[in-house]
């Protein structure tokens, strides 16, 4: 059975571009608040742009993970939401406490303390966070493409609508 004539790759690409555009829109909505906050303590524009970059790429990675969960766990809606919330919180808590360069929260806080670079290296917290988020988003989207292509019934295009019963069928004829 063909669920849709559109290939899976174009569906995932469309989903990715829509995610990027929507994330940029949400960041633009939050930008005035960041500018207001920066006027209070005189934060530089370079820090604002880095914070926006870290937040945007992390949100994109989380969106990709949510899309992967949607593809794999689509029939189990409660399980899907639970997995997304649990894994997101567990990732933030674990990385903030144990692997700080991977954590977006640590990356934002490191910008506050002026630690653009880690001690003894040329590696910066925010840059590591941005690169890892982009890589994670790519891996999740590729996995979602493979996961949806492996079985036609679990296509990301959703399930086919159940045919509406006719009046005759509803009456029991």
């Amino acid at each position: 059975m063909t669920l849709t004539p559109v290939p899976v790759s174009s569906v995932v690409a469309g989903r990715l571009s829509a995610s990027v555009i929507h994330t940029v829109f949400l960041l633009a909505l939050g930008l005035p608040f960041l500018f207001l906050g920066s006027t209070v303590n005189g934060t530089a524009i370079s820090v604002i742009s880095r914070v926006v970059l870290v937040s945007g790429t992390s949100a994109l990675a989380l969106r990709a993970f949510a899309f992967l969960c949607f593809v794999l766990l689509e029939p189990h809606r409660l399980l899907k939401d639970g997995v997304i919330i649990f894994c997101g919180l567990a990732f933030l808590i674990a990385t903030t406490s144990a692997v700080q360069p991977l954590s977006p929260i640590s990356a934002i806080l490191s910008l506050e303390r002026g630690r653009f670079h880690r001690a003894g290296t040329r590696c910066s917290f925010y840059l590591v966070s941005v690169i890892m988020s982009v890589l994670a988003a790519a891996v999740f989207y590729i996995a979602a493409g493979y996961g949806s292509g492996s079985s036609a019934d679990d296509s990301p295009c959703g399930r086919p609508p159940s045919p509406r019963p006719t009046r005759r069928a509803r009456r029991g004829f």
């Binding site: 995610s19 994330t23 608040f33 960041l34 989380l62 899309f67 997304i84 934002i108």
Partner: peptide, 21 residues
């Protein structure tokens, strides 16, 4: 600024998880 930034990140993360799925 960083309190605002963390709040913005929290809102973004929630909306990303919500709309991504």
């Amino acid at each position: 600024f960083f309190a605002v930034a963390l709040c913005l990140f929290g809102c973004l993360a929630y909306l990303a998880a919500r709309f991504g799925a």
